[in-house]
Amino acid sequence: MVIAEHNNNNIAPDTLKALNAASQLGGAVSVLVIGHQCSSVTDTLRGAAGVTQVYQIDDERYQNPLAETLTPAVFGLAKDHSHVLAAATTFGKNLLPRVAALLDVGQVSDVIRVESPNTFIRPIYAGNALAKVQSNDSKIVMTVRGSAFQACALSEDSAPVVNLDPTETANTISEFIGIEQTVSERPDLSSANVVISGGRGLASKENFALVERLADKLGGAIGASRAAVDAGYVSNDLQVGQTGKIVAPDLYIAVGISGAIQHMAGMKDSKVIVAINSDQMRQSLRWQIMVWSEICSKLCLN
């Protein structure tokens, strides 16, 4: 069973990748959609390749995806499934450990390859090594790294929908206050084909604007190292790395980034990596970005 991440209207791209991973486990694949007025999400997932059944819990109390509210509902269904999966996003990392604790099983985190129904490959030491792990638990709870799997196909096929009643357990631990979301015309960082990231070498927020101009010219997303985020050049939702977002675009351009192991863990699977960096970064940065802007604008980025 895959737990769908969504905003009651649209599916998070990594959910479709988690479905692909689930299909490699063998057997029937179901999806759980919990939300409020989320029928459009359910209708879309009915046509996801490999999905044999969609569970839907639609209730006002699930308008906002608080892990403390969702966990009892997921736990109730998890008992009837051999595997419970979610993408290794903030949503999945917050929800599934709670489910695993209630099931009294260990969690397999950040899976990048499925070897068998109980054997998986996952990165360790910030991606410098890969570990093969095997779970002997009666049920397996796992998060899946989206950058390691292709999204499953969507079609007009219709898997059956099972409507379930909400769980009566009340959430007295947390309360939803509000959401502050950056609206941008640029592609989403996690799923963009082109990502341009800036680091400490840019030296100022004003210089970081050059990265934004390059991203706009290439139709790419903006990323940043932790040093750039800590310096206030950009907001922390753009951080790429071990403690940020994991990306694997067709083209990754790193501007003024030293290449620390924590940052490399978040982008090393990119198909083409271009580094703009030198000992004279501050003096030559503007020239380098202008040159690369012209070069990259001529590349075929299909």
Score class of each variant (00 low, 15 high):
residue 157 D to L: 07
residue 218 L to K: 07
residue 233 Y to A: 09
residue 230 D to A: 14
residue 195 V to K: 03
residue 209 A to E: 12
residue 220 G to H: 05
residue 162 V to F: 04
residue 179 I to P: 00
residue 223 G to M: 01
residue 146 G to A: 08
residue 164 L to S: 08
residue 154 L to T: 05
residue 163 N to H: 13
residue 164 L to K: 08
residue 209 A to T: 12
residue 168 E to H: 09
residue 146 G to M: 12
residue 189 L to W: 11
residue 160 P to Q: 11
residue 160 P to L: 12
residue 232 G to L: 00
residue 205 K to M: 00
residue 223 G to H: 06
residue 197 S to C: 05
residue 146 G to S: 11
residue 214 L to C: 05
residue 193 N to A: 05
residue 195 V to H: 07
residue 223 G to E: 02
residue 179 I to G: 05
residue 237 D to V: 13
residue 182 T to R: 15
residue 223 G to Q: 06
residue 218 L to C: 13
residue 151 A to Y: 05
residue 173 I to H: 14
residue 219 G to Q: 02
residue 155 S to R: 11
residue 191 S to H: 12
residue 238 L to N: 11
residue 210 L to K: 10
residue 163 N to W: 00
residue 236 N to S: 15
residue 194 V to D: 02
residue 176 F to N: 04
residue 154 L to D: 01
residue 222 I to T: 02
residue 164 L to N: 06
residue 227 A to S: 14
residue 158 S to K: 15
residue 156 E to K: 11
residue 151 A to C: 00
residue 177 I to A: 07
residue 234 V to A: 02
residue 184 S to Y: 12
residue 203 A to T: 15
residue 196 I to N: 07
residue 217 K to E: 09
residue 176 F to Y: 15
residue 193 N to S: 14
residue 242 Q to V: 08
residue 204 S to F: 14
residue 227 A to T: 07
residue 150 Q to I: 00
residue 219 G to P: 02
residue 225 S to Q: 06
residue 213 R to I: 14
residue 208 F to L: 02
residue 148 A to N: 02
residue 227 A to K: 06
residue 175 E to C: 00
residue 214 L to V: 08
residue 228 A to V: 04
residue 220 G to D: 02
residue 229 V to A: 14
residue 168 E to L: 12
residue 221 A to H: 08
residue 195 V to F: 11
residue 236 N to T: 03
residue 179 I to M: 14
residue 165 D to G: 01
residue 149 F to K: 05
residue 196 I to A: 06
residue 175 E to S: 14
residue 150 Q to L: 07
residue 147 S to I: 12
residue 189 L to V: 09
residue 224 A to V: 11
residue 214 L to T: 04
residue 186 R to Y: 10
residue 216 D to T: 01
residue 153 A to L: 07
residue 161 V to C: 05
residue 180 E to N: 13
residue 205 K to V: 03
residue 160 P to E: 07
residue 148 A to V: 00
residue 204 S to K: 11
residue 215 A to E: 00
residue 173 I to A: 12
residue 223 G to N: 05
residue 177 I to P: 01
residue 150 Q to T: 14
residue 187 P to C: 04
residue 188 D to M: 12
residue 172 T to A: 14
residue 191 S to N: 11
residue 181 Q to R: 13
residue 202 L to N: 11
residue 145 R to P: 04
residue 154 L to H: 09
residue 175 E to I: 00
